[in-house]
Computed example of a mutant assay.
Amino acid sequence: MTNIIRRFRDRYLDVLASVYIYNEHRGYTSLDRVLLAVRAHCPDNQEFIAQVEKHRADEHKHYHMFKRYFQLRGQMPLRVGRTCGHIDHFIEQIFGCTIDELDTDAIIADPKLFEKLCRVIMLTEQRGMTQVDILLRNKFIKKDKIMMKIFKIIKVDEPSHWLPYHHWLSQNGDVRSTWRERATDFWIHKSLMLAKLPAIFIRRGTARMEFWPDEAEDILFEGTNAN
Rank of each mutant, 00 (worst) to 15 (best):
T2E: 04
R9W: 00
D10P: 01
R11Y: 04
A17S: 14
A17Q: 02
S18A: 06
I21K: 04
Y22P: 06
R26A: 06
S30W: 14
R39I: 15
N45F: 06
F48G: 02
I49Y: 00
Q51L: 07
E59L: 05
K61N: 03
H62V: 07
H64I: 10
H64M: 11
H64N: 15
F66M: 03
K67L: 10
Q71G: 13
G81Y: 14
I87D: 11
I91V: 07
F95G: 07
I99C: 13
T104V: 15
D105N: 07
A106C: 08
D110W: 05
K112H: 01
R119C: 10
E125Y: 01
E125A: 02
G128N: 14
Q131F: 15
I134T: 01
R137H: 06
N138I: 00
N138F: 01
I141R: 01
K142C: 14
K143F: 05
K145N: 15
M148N: 12
M148G: 12
M148W: 09
K149R: 12
D157L: 03
H161A: 09
H161K: 10
Y165T: 07
H167R: 11
H167L: 08
S170I: 03
Q171Y: 07
Q171W: 07
N172I: 00
W179R: 13
D185S: 15
W187E: 13
I188R: 05
L197D: 06
P198Q: 02
P198C: 00
I200S: 08
F201D: 13
F201A: 08
I202C: 01
I202V: 06
R203Y: 13
R203D: 13
R203G: 06
T206D: 05
A207Q: 14
P213I: 11
A216F: 06
D218Q: 10
G223D: 09
G223K: 13
N225A: 12
N225S: 14
